[in-house]
């Protein structure tokens, strides 16, 4: 039986690990490769690196990080942030990433999803979307709107419709980040996650809001997510990956326990 996945998200800025709250204000947390390796040894199922480097001239630092991660850890990892062309995507895969994650650039130019899926395969192309709750309206009937540029710009675009469209264009997995829940440690946006999971034929990764192992349990059952993303709760040492997986296992959620 397929296991539910615990995924750790590492925001990388100029080659260093950082963590923000509601997508702003970041503090630096050290070497992402060392952190990734510690999680890998602790039974983590997958990693996501988001390159939040501001300037494009720093981008080679990210390729170095990816190469170093690929030498040390042997679980799947994806990389997002700043991918604007199929060449960017192919370069990250060559450096050792398993998947690439598209966000703002895909909202601005949806064809990018198709181009990447054709170049590197649907299964390696992830659509990551930042979403916030709004009063349901004509443009966003679900009450969830897509935002870009790290949550700063609302697009007047319905999140559920965009998830569907992304899959039609070739996304093989969708990450749903709730801007409202991000960094608050009060739990995932269950309703949003479930709406997306029920609307699309590919796996859904829930993101934003994890503070306790019970939050993961909720989103992997009630929220119908295939995987749950954690950041703060493991980066600051509040919980170990092992604690989270043991909790899920005890609650009857199938997770990989032998590693």
């Amino acid at each position: 039986m397929l296991s539910k996945r615990v995924v750790a998200c590492l925001d990388v800025k100029n080659g260093e690990l950082s963590k923000g709250v509601q997508f702003v204000a970041t503090e630096m947390l050290g070497d992402p490769v060392a952190k990734a390796k510690a999680y890998y040894e602790d039974g983590l199922d997958e990693l996501v690196f988001y390159d939040i480097t501001a300037s494009s001239d720093q981008r080679n630092i990210m390729l170095d990080v990816v190469q170093n991660v690929a030498r040390e850890i042997f679980i799947p990892f994806s990389v997002g942030g700043g991918i604007r062309t199929r060449e960017d995507a192919a370069g990250l895969l060559m450096a050792g990433a398993e998947k690439i994650s598209l966000n703002s650039a895909a909202v601005l130019r949806p064809e990018l999803v198709k181009e990447c899926a054709q170049a590197i395969g649907t299964q390696n192309t992830v659509l990551s979307m930042d979403v916030r709750a709004v009063v349901p309206n004509t443009a966003c009937p679900s009450g969830y709107e897509v935002v870009i540029n790290g949550g700063r710009k609302a697009m007047g675009m319905d999140a559920i419709a965009w998830a569907r469209r992304g899959c039609e264009l070739g996304a093989g997995e969708v990450v749903v980040n709730s801007i409202d829940a991000d960094g608050m440690k009060q739990g995932y946006e269950i309703k949003l996650t479930r709406l997306v999971a029920e609307a699309i034929p590919v796996p859904v990764v829930a993101s934003g809001g994890a503070g306790t192992p019970a939050h993961l349990h909720q989103v992997l059952t009630e929220g119908k997510a295939d995987a749950a993303l954690v950041a703060s709760m493991v980066h600051y040492g509040d919980y170990r990956v092992l604690d989270i997986k043991q909790y899920l296992n005890r609650q009857g959620v199938k997770v990989r326990m032998n590693y």
């Binding site: 039986m1 397929l2 296991s3 539910k4 996945r5 199922d45 649907t122 299964q123 093989g172 997995e173 034929p201 590919v202 796996p203 295939d226 995987a227 990989r256």
Partner: peptide, 13 residues
């Protein structure tokens, strides 16, 4: 049953 999403992505024994 539509609960099983194809492709299978993830860890399995």
């Amino acid at each position: 049953e539509s609960d099983y999403k194809v492709p299978q992505i993830g860890w399995n024994e």
